[in-house]
Design a protein around this nucleic acid. Structure first.
Lengths: 114, 114
DNA sequence: ATCTAAGGGGTAATATATGACTCAAAAGAA
DNA sequence: TTCTTTTGAGTCATATATTACCCCTTAGAT
């Protein structure tokens, strides 16, 4: 039996919780702006039901739907901060670990004029 | 003709760009950690191809895949900041606008003991 | 109290995502 | 250079997302 969509059965509970929180935050933001699901869904070019899945924390909704929701709410800029390389402390640390112990001057072909 | 998946054809270019950036940031973070796509995909319980779609900015990948990637990279906490109600300036402003002009003391039935 | 609209949830049809497999190009190490 | 690994990409089968349509409960306004 070829198993499909392993991820749905294996999503760590914390990841599920994060997605659920995102959904409820989006719902709160929508209500604060006094927008109905119908109205917001149409601005997102999706159906009310799909927006509902997002707001209810369904992990299966696409990044398109998610991003579009933030877009309609005017919150899309926050997404740009995610996984920013210059703020990735773990990454920067690991990168240093990968640096060579010593550096040796490399012979550069000097006909590469620049 | 019933049009399906309108969102794919209607995603604002900026939203597409944001998703593409997220993907490339994830790719950078992975490389910094010296993890191959194969290795990372297996930790996410998806195939290398699906991870590739995420890293290449495919707007169709699910929140599950996206969140799982951040999870594996140890960056999932950043997601918790998205659309946080207490930091939603637009929302807080609009909420104030919705407040009633005046307040009138309401007759509270006092047999609601609490 | 009454009424209207908002939203939760079901179904069937269809588009798309995802997995499994494969080939090939490109990157990197020795 | 040569060899190995990584990764990009195509195909097919299947699971799932999304739509369009439906009904129904309930919250909120009057």
């Amino acid at each position: 039996m070829t198993q499909k969509n392993r991820i749905r059965k294996s999503l760590p509970p914390e990841a599920l919780a994060i997605i659920a929180q995102l959904g409820s935050h989006i719902k709160i933001a929508r209500k604060r702006r006094a927008i109905t699901m119908e109205e917001m869904a149409s601005r997102m070019f999706v159906t009310r039901k799909t927006l509902g899945r997002l707001e209810n924390g369904d992990p299966g909704v696409s990044l398109a739907v998610f991003t579009s929701a933030l877009w309609v709410l005017g919150l899309e800029n926050q997404l740009k901060e995610i996984a920013l390389p210059e703020q990735d402390k773990i990454g920067l640390y690991r990168e240093q670990q990968l640096l060579p112990k010593r550096v040796r001057s490399t012979k550069i072909k000097d006909d590469l004029d620049f």
